[in-house]
Nucleic acid binder design. Structure first.
Lengths: 215, 215
DNA sequence: CTCCATCAGTACCGTACGGTACGGTTCGCG
DNA sequence: CGCGAACCGTACCGTACGGTACTGATGGAG
């Protein structure tokens, strides 16, 4: 997640120069540390050792900078596709548990929480481009991985469902419940992370009990 | 939820005068309409036909006013206790479905969404009193109703679980999934509300399939 | 009627932020 | 070397907000 060192990296993928990516990195760090209120153009310029003029030249506007931050962060997250060849019951369970743990880890991450808070705060005013973007690039991405996993399970005769979206919704709800919102509201995530592993297994057990064959 | 007409109402319960309650009502309306950015002290004073000086005299501070708004709104929501005498399977299911529909309706409400956005936006900076307060007065309240319902179901031999908190978490997750977050991010709630009824029943079916006696 | 408390309305102040303009510096290129 | 582009640092401007001070009106108590 912090690998700025890779040449090109996430910057090239979005048509950004390396320097601009580094600036966005600093902006994300500012956002994580101090919240939206601390995310001033002057602060970003100071933290990134660049000038405000450059910020406006590169991103046009404060909103453009915010959008670029979300876009940049999303471009760093790549969901590994599961090679679902020859899946047995135990393998499916392991994959589901891994997915659950990854999901909880991602949602509990500093940057994810900060960006979600930012987008939610901006969601009230008309436009709400950020919320839509976060939704599209974040959830849709991880949803694809889950969808592929569920479809593979069904093809292997291990899962039974007629609506993949509904099954995914149940899986998501069983895993996350209201933990995401609680973390967004400021509950200390350190205490929560301890129970994540057990929570992931419990959720997958329940999900398999609902949608597993002869379950 | 909108019954401001009751004499005294939520104001008296919180040690507020009727006038102060009306001011908070206008503040909530401003927040719902325009988001946190529109919630300025001058705007509240203008909307409520009062002076800024009175605002500061009554609530001390802008944060105090925000806290008062959450406290005031929470004091208006009363969870009806279920008289759980003689519960059969069909009755339990009906109660659960009613709870699910109420939960979805509350979470999708304008005021709830606006207050959650406000608290989440404020959660980053140290203190995060609002998030904690919303958590305590909101979730804990509705969680009690669910807890009583679940306990009654177990006592009637209709539900089997060893950890009420875990069962409630599963119920909540199955009902809400990621819909709350999506609405907080600005997704149009109008389109969602149509499916709430069916969603509530599906969720309760799944929950009963997990925790109902004999499968 | 007089006194006093409360409150609306407004003017005011300090601050902080978004956005712009300008001087000085580095660096690549002909 | 000369030139221009990119850019850093900073100063600057307009605006908007939080919070305070003042004035005048209202209304109840003695």
């Amino acid at each position: 997640m912090q690998n700025v060192l890779e040449s090109g990296g996430a910057s090239a993928a979005s048509g950004l120069t390396e320097r601009q990516g580094a600036v966005l990195e600093q902006a994300l760090r500012l956002l994580v540390d101090g919240g939206e209120k601390a995310l001033t153009t002057a602060g970003i310029a100071r933290a990134a050792n660049c000038s405000k003029e450059s910020l406006y030249k590169w991103f046009g506007d404060r909103d453009g900078l915010l959008s670029a931050m979300i876009s940049y962060q999303a471009s760093k997250v790549r969901t590994l596709d599961v090679s679902a060849g020859a899946l047995d019951a135990e393998g499916l369970r392991r994959h589901l548990v891994a997915f659950a743990k990854d999901l909880l880890a991602v949602l509990a991450g500093d940057v994810s929480l900060a960006l979600n808070r930012l987008a939610i705060g901006q969601a009230s005013r008309e436009g709400s481009k950020l919320g839509h973007m976060l939704q599209e690039r974040g959830r849709r991405q991880i949803g694809r991985r889950a969808g592929a996993l569920l479809e593979a399970g069904r093809k292997a005769g291990l899962l039974v469902f007629h609506d993949a979206e509904e099954a995914y919704g149940a899986l998501y709800g069983l895993i996350v419940s209201d933990w995401h919102l609680r973390m967004l509201l400021g509950e200390e995530p350190g205490e929560m992370k301890k129970g994540f592993s057990r929570r992931a297994e419990r959720a997958v057990d329940a999900f398999l009990s609902l949608y597993g064959k002869k379950g």
